[in-house]
Design a protein around this nucleic acid. Sequence first.
DNA 1: TAGTGGTCTAGACCACGGT
DNA 2: CCGTGGTCTAGACCACTAG
Lengths: 217, 217
Amino acid sequence: MERYPAGSLLPSEHEICRQYRITRTTTRKALDELVREGFVKKEQGRGSRVVERRKSLGLLTVKGFSEAVGKGVRTRFLRQPHLTEWPEDLPFSPEAVELDTPCIFFERLRYVGDNPVMHESNWFSGKPLKGFTGIDFIDGSFFKTLSQRYLIEITTSEQEIRALAADDRRSLLLNIQKGAPILKISIRFSTSEPLLNIYSLLYCDTEKYPIGNYYKH
Amino acid sequence: MERYPAGSLLPSEHEICRQYRITRTTTRKALDELVREGFVKKEQGRGSRVVERRKSLGLLTVKGFSEAVGKGVRTRFLRQPHLTEWPEDLPFSPEAVELDTPCIFFERLRYVGDNPVMHESNWFSGKPLKGFTGIDFIDGSFFKTLSQRYLIEITTSEQEIRALAADDRRSLLLNIQKGAPILKISIRFSTSEPLLNIYSLLYCDTEKYPIGNYYKH
DNA sequence: TAGTGGTCTAGACCACGGT
DNA sequence: CCGTGGTCTAGACCACTAG
């Protein structure tokens, strides 16, 4: 496993092809992914450069919180995964087949250092994930757990973003004034398991840590 | 120019290859772009389906306002493009070479129907875009104008999203109460013209029209 | 089984950057 | 000039969906 410091040039695409005995197509597909995720920048005629990582929470189009942010991130469970009823006011209403299955819910509070910055609620069908309870999260990441323990990958995500005033609960949790502006992000994650969609509701205090996003067109 | 209604299946990838005398690689690259932009959904073993368009402002990872939203979108110029000084508090500080060139600025207010929903400010170097003044915008789209009139394309964008309280100016423009929560999106667009970056600041009233986003991993 | 999308190999030509 | 990334052709095998 090679390591390349930020700003340095990676081996050329042709070189990578030779090293790993793969073709340009495959090499470029992998590199393009790194570019989309913001890890690598390409410079035509020069090479591919490792990008300086941004400090802001690289959420949005990126997978999970714990992968997106570097160090100093802590997570506290407000409610561990448990069976419940499907709520009424879910963003991106679930499909009928899902509503016929039991609903698993969990709720977490995410910190950067000592500051709570995000309140996260998650709902999903318990059917494809039988026996999912307790905090058996790998590295604190729900998505990593899905991937490694259940071989389920996120395929697409749909998001909706609003600004709103913190209500009683959110102001208490995020340690901010009631009515302070916060970000509400509603997400529907689709997964490689057709019966499994994950519905997430995020409330973010963006005062100190804005949400970041990088995109290559 | 064929048209396919929402929900219908497109011709298969192999079929498109035959029709246009191109290879799978090329076909798939084009389709993947449509998938990333949220226009098409692929279903393995079945085909590629035209996606039902979302109502929310499909901004973020999508190009411009006027392409993103369907009908009923109007735009009013608060300040037409004109020369000015580079501001101090720009998001994603410009590079030294840019600061040595004159700065062009324009400011618009965007409506859906009769509701102002977004206040937009844009700064960029006047050097690569000599003679850019007046409202010579194609279809009201700055990016379409760049593309068609100057052959300049957006290559990457970096965004930062915050929630904040509307100040006097924003509350006046967006016709909302002072202190109401609004979305602030700071963007740096890089373009195919190396000397041209576009710095944009968006303030959105997300009460009625949230910001949308679709992503394929 | 036939057709679909997902992935890959092999190899070509081009425009761009630095020497 | 050579090496880089950008794009493309040609063709293969696979897993999945549906009749």
